[in-house]
Structure formats: structure tokens, C-alpha cells
Nucleic acid binder design. Structure first.
Lengths: 145, 145
DNA sequence: ATAAAAGTCTATCGAAATAGTAGTCTTTAT
DNA sequence: ATAAAGACTACTATTTCGATAGACTTTTAT
């Protein structure tokens, strides 16, 4: 399961992506609009900002806006910042590899091989879905319904 | 990430699957062989047994064995018993659906749609990989190496 | 009949991770 | 100068996870 932190992060980026016409957006507004606890959101935005995905401006009239094109922010990027590994076992992780404690022989481990396949299947989706894609899917539905 | 419980469950089933020639296998032996805390393993085996995947026999000479063919036990089955949902967000889960607290409109939620795709990609692997497949992959490597 | 070898079941505990809160500091616009 | 914002750090509460404990039941061997 995604942590709430990650879900909030995605929601925030999507909201900021929809708001590109009149930035910046204040934390308080974003928190209210997306039903995210304000102080918690504050920390999350900080992380995303420090990772280079958001631009922030202090003082009156300040707030947050995207620092990259929404089409260039992939869900994998976000997950790795807020949740860490995408793989389901540490020994199958690309960016957060760790040996499994109880593993006898990683080379022949059938579990590892299977979960590398799972990881790749997951990455196939997440590394090709950008914030812009998520927004597009929502707009698509508004037109259909 | 998989819980240790799930990883232990898979390991246990794989070990029991490799042991079909001379069952049953005692918890203590299984625990030692797979480096799993004995009392923790005990609970896990109980769950798998109550779900119908294992057969157990009490008393001297008793122990555990598979209650189904290893080819008929899929990783999805195991994960759902020990970890619950396979989807990364509750609203995308097939067997453990739950509405997301902060969600405004599930019908148009782009995050949900994306994570339904992720779920399907994951299921594509896990619902087609049985305990027998995991064992086969390990044996395959022993031959090659 | 009894002792030993197993699994069964339920309760509990401690540590770590997650979710959220509080408060002080800094920057900027007016 | 002041108000409106974000930056930063520390802390707290809650939940989940991993593990342990112990008393009970069934089965086999002698």
C-alpha cells in the first residue's frame, strides 16, 4: 500500500499541475482543496521542493508551483522520494537494494526472480505515467460523463 | 514492501513443495532450515492451513505438508492471506476494496485509474506464478550454474 | 497408561514506521 | 513596520509489524 504521504504528494502535484494558469498556490488552499492536514502537507511539499520538483516563494503572494513541466514528472520519481523502493522485496529494488536477511543464496532465489518481474511490470506503468497523464485521464472523464 | 510474514509464508510453501517426497515436515525443522523464528512461523503455517493450503498432523511423527499441488498454489493466494490487498491504494483493490478518505470523486480519479493499471500489471505476474513455478526457477539455476 | 512429540490457540509485548502537530524562524510584499 | 506566506526542526500519538510466551490438544510409541 502507498503511504498517505505518497498519495498526498501525488494529489498535490496533480492539483498544482491543474493550476499552472495562475500560480502560485498557497499551502493552506491546497490543503483545504485536497483534504490534506495542513502541517503534514507542508512537510511533503518541502520534500518535493528539495528534490527539485516544486518552486516555492515566501512572503505575501507567495506559494507553490511546479518547477518542471507536468509531463516530465513521473510517478516513479514521486514514489521514490516519499515511499522509497518500488520493489516488493529489498533484494529486487533498483534504487534501494538491500540483501534479504534470511536469504541463503540470492543468485538462485526463485522468490527474488519473481519479484523482479513484478517490479518490472510495475515500473512499466509508473515510469510511463506522468503528472500530466494523470490530469489528462481526469479531464478525459469529465468530457465523457 | 512485502511483510516478513508473507515472505516467510512463500518460503515455507516452497520448502514444503520441495519436500513432497517425504512429508511431513516439522515446524522446528522448517524454521531452522529457512531461518524463520519458530513461533512466528507457527502462526503463519496455521493461517495457511486454515485457508486450506496446508495439511497438518499432530503428535509424534506429525508435521506439515502441502494440501494442494504446488502448481495450484498461486502467489496471489498467499499474498492475500498474509498481507491482504495487492493493489497499492485501497480504492483499486479487487478483494479488499475501500474508499479513500480524501477522495472527492472516485469515478474521475486519475490516481485510481493509474493504480488499477499497476494492480493489473502486478496480477499478471503473481496470478500466473505458482509455488511450483518458483521451485522450477530455482532448479533451473542449479542446472545452469 | 503414560510420556514424549508434535501441532493449536490466544494473549501479549516491544520496536519501528506512519501520520500528524506545534512552534519558531526567515523572507517578501505592501 | 506588519502581515502573509514558506522553512525548518522537534516532538507526539497511533498503528502495524515482528516476535514471544504459555497453556492446551492430539497422536504415537513403549
Amino acid at each position: 500500500m502507498l503511504s498517505k504521504k505518497t498519495k498526498y504528494a501525488i494529489k498535490a502535484l496533480v492539483a498544482l499541475g491543474k493550476n499552472v494558469e495562475n500560480p502560485p498556490m498557497q499551502i493552506v488552499r491546497l490543503a483545504e482543496q485536497e483534504m490534506i492536514p495542513r502541517k503534514f502537507l507542508e512537510q511533503i511539499l518541502l520534500d518535493l521542493r528539495n528534490a527539485g520538483y516544486l518552486y516555492s516563494k515566501k512572503g505575501a503572494g507567495g506559494g507553490y508551483s511546479l518547477n518542471k513541466n507536468a509531463a516530465d514528472i513521473y510517478l516513479t520519481d514521486i514514489l521514490r522520494i516519499t515511499d522509497g523502493p518500488i520493489a516488493m522485496v529489498p533484494c529486487a529494488s533498483i534504487k534501494f537494494y538491500r540483501k534479504c536477511d534470511e536469504c541463503h543464496d540470492e543468485k538462485t532465489c526463485g522468490i527474488r526472480k519473481t519479484f523482479i518481474d513484478v517490479r518490472d511490470a510495475t515500473l512499466e506503468v509508473l515510469s510511463k505515467t506522468s503528472v500530466a497523464d494523470v490530469i489528462a485521464r481526469e479531464n478525459l472523464d469529465e468530457i465523457i460523463n
